[in-house]
């Protein structure tokens, strides 16, 4: 890896570890391999959002040309959010694309992602289904996001109704995650979700 990139990551690594956000358990980075090309990031779900109490894991890939090109970041923890794909975890965020600046760091990226969790941009969606729900049925969206946070990111809010519905589909032989995606996409309408699952 290019000299500047390695040097930068090493320094940034220390910066993040030392930063006050780490002290508050808000963000964290870990090395995945020894040559600093891949890192694991973690962000805490911001308070007063459906993601509160959850811990979200990110995959960070550092390109050869870092920091002149942005790092490649995606969510490993499944998340229900208009700007994040519920399937692949791909993120739609300007600073990870054309608005990237060389003076930005892993810390700023993680903080920006945390900010994205508290203020979604449904007009520039990565996941159209989620974005539609966010705009049409905000209440349903929040419940769903909270449920996902509970299941995948260790959030505190258990939803008996949702769990029951998933159980019903599981009883029909549907895989759990698949059942959750289908129900979430159809506003937890069991009938329509079943229809969709069995028609394809």
């Amino acid at each position: 890896m290019a000299n500047i990139a390695t040097q930068r990551i090493k320094r940034e690594f220390k910066e993040v570890i030392k930063s006050e956000e780490v002290a508050k358990c808000a963000i964290r980075v870990q090395l995945v391999d020894d040559n600093y090309t891949e890192l694991k990031g973690e962000i805490a779900g911001p308070p007063d959002t459906p993601y509160e109490g959850g811990n979200f894991v990110l995959e960070i890939k550092v390109p050869e040309t870092y920091p002149f090109n942005p790092p490649k970041v995606r969510f490993i923890t499944k998340i229900w959010h208009p700007n994040i794909s519920s399937v692949t975890g791909a993120i739609c965020l300007d600073i990870l694309k054309d608005q990237w600046a060389a003076a930005m760091t892993l810390r700023t990226v993680l903080l920006s992602l945390q900010a994205l969790l508290s203020s979604a941009e449904p007009d520039d969606p990565q996941d159209a289904v989620v974005a539609k729900q966010y705009k049409d049925k905000l209440d349903m969206f929040e419940k769903t996001a909270r449920h996902w946070t509970h299941v995948y990111a260790g959030g505190p809010c258990y939803n008996q109704e949702f769990a029951d519905k998933i159980k019903r589909l599981e009883d029909m032989g549907v895989e759990e995650n698949q059942a959750r995606v289908a129900l979430s996409s159809y506003n937890w309408d069991l009938e329509r979700a079943t229809e969709q699952l069995f028609s394809s």
Binding site: I4, Q7, R8, R11, E15, P67, A102, A103
Partner: peptide, 17 residues
């Protein structure tokens, strides 16, 4: 604006040197 001055030296915000 953003580079910290450390007693007669500066830190580059890109490479952190």
């Amino acid at each position: 604006k953003s580079s910290k001055k450390l007693s007669g030296t500066e830190e580059c915000d890109i490479c952190f040197m």
